[in-house]
Design a protein around this nucleic acid. Structure first.
Lengths: 248, 248
DNA sequence: AACATCGTACCGAAATACGGCACATAAAGC
DNA sequence: GCTTTATGTGCCGTATTTCGGTACGATGTT
């Protein structure tokens, strides 16, 4: 089904370049205009794209995709199971709580409850971050089979080389040692993602012990005392097992 | 491009029924198994779906869709332009601030900054609500041409009849009057969406005066004094014009 | 006013999507 | 344990469709 593959690529390219016209797409994709336009017409009929704000010459995405997206991250009531526990965590710690899932070599932030403190860092929802430098990312990695870890590590360094992120300096060997420690402790920490932010994360695992998502507690370095760190570690380990129960 | 249309329908059905197998899909779609399976194979190669947790017999969505979704709601830096202003609004009011966009007859919550108060209502991110009973929804409607309003009204009552929501009692005529008032004031209010929650909303408009998104201030009824209401109204009108400036 | 660029329509040749059928494997029923 | 039902997968000939080169009209640019 070659046409489907092409149409999907067109769809993704429209997402990147919107609002965009036929010719521009054709050169980007190195495909004949005719084919691109046929794909556009079909996507339009299927209501995945629409003419941009009245103009009949440029195309943009509709919300068809985002309807799917919600379900993609929805691993069967994950949000519903996690939110109350996250609420309680925030009450107990007074810090910002994040819920994230894994997408290839990145984590995606899907829920957030903020610290009531004036000093805090707000991460945009739906935002992405490299898996190797985040507490949630490392916590999830630690629960995965070694083969998967190596594959994701490969993707991450490949992606980072062009995105100029932080992780490249970390050899695979050291990472595996760190992950082994995280797996036995049940939680991960990081201070290397955002400056001045210390985060404690733990993975939410399904019945097959594969990680579904992860939650984290983020705190400004100034509040990350030794006592706070140990408290956060204990609380988050309890929280993820509670969420996993609710998930069934 | 019939195959593309079919493949997209298959994709959406997988989203609804995941994790799901070939045969179940085939009966749901009233299509031959062969065709459905070919579509699944193609979607798999394109990495839009994957076998569910190791099993090779059930399919689920990947995050390919959610990558698009973020851009669908991204109307060119909307989130980046809105967040700082929303931050300021929250500081000034001490209440929960929402950012929502319109999707057919529903609004979709895409950002949220929470009230620091202990008493507050937390709406899940990505959540949807009927357009006619929310402050954000009415604020956006009020900025649209009458033809669009009528179309959306029609969709809304159709959707509500099967979703058993609140709006059906409102005749179109009354709605148009209310929207006219909202348009001239520049903000909308509601108390009829969540019990005990009073919300003030205003639309963020593009250069063509069409609504792009809307923000709202949600407060428990107990804190919604007359002074608070007028303060919120003034603040939110100022906020949306500020965001619109940042958008260019 | 001449030109470049863009979106759209047409068309013959060839690729491939189509769906019925059959087989193999796994669950369910007795 | 054996039969029966359901499910995932492979095959194949026909004909429906896609494919991309080319051409035309509209738009706006120098």
């Amino acid at each position: 089904m070659n046409s489907v593959r092409k149409a999907l690529v067109v769809l993704e390219t429209v997402a990147d370049l919107q609002p965009v016209g036929v010719s521009e797409l054709a050169v980007h994709l190195k495909q004949p205009k005719s084919s691109v336009q046929r794909a556009l017409e079909t996507l339009h009929e299927a209501a995945w794209i629409r003419p941009a704000s009245g103009e009949r010459t440029r195309w943009e995405l509709t919300f068809r995709a985002s309807r799917l997206a919600r379900k993609a991250g929805n691993h069967f009531g994950l949000r519903e199971a996690a939110l109350p526990v996250m609420e309680q965590l925030r009450r107990e710690t007074g810090e910002t709580i994040h819920l994230a899932v894994l997408d290839e070599s990145e984590i995606v932030l899907i829920e957030r409850l903020e610290s009531p403190h004036a000093v805090r860092h707000v991460e945009p929802l739906g935002g992405r971050a490299p898996v190797l430098v985040t507490a949630t990312g490392k916590a999830m990695l630690a629960q995965m089979p070694e083969a998967d870890i190596e594959r994701i590590y490969g993707e991450a360094v490949k992606a980072d080389s062009q995105a100029s992120a932080v992780s490249a300096a970390l050899p695979l060997g050291e990472l595996l040692v760190e992950l082994r420690g995280i797996a036995s402790r049940g939680y991960a920490t990081t201070a290397s993602w955002r400056d001045g932010v210390f985060a404690t994360g733990a993975a939410i695992s399904g019945p097959d012990r594969r990680p579904i998502a992860a939650i984290s507690i983020s705190t400004p370095a100034a509040r990350a005392t030794a006592e706070a760190r140990t408290a956060h570690a204990e609380l988050i380990v309890a929280a993820v097992s509670q969420i996993a129960e609710h998930l069934n």
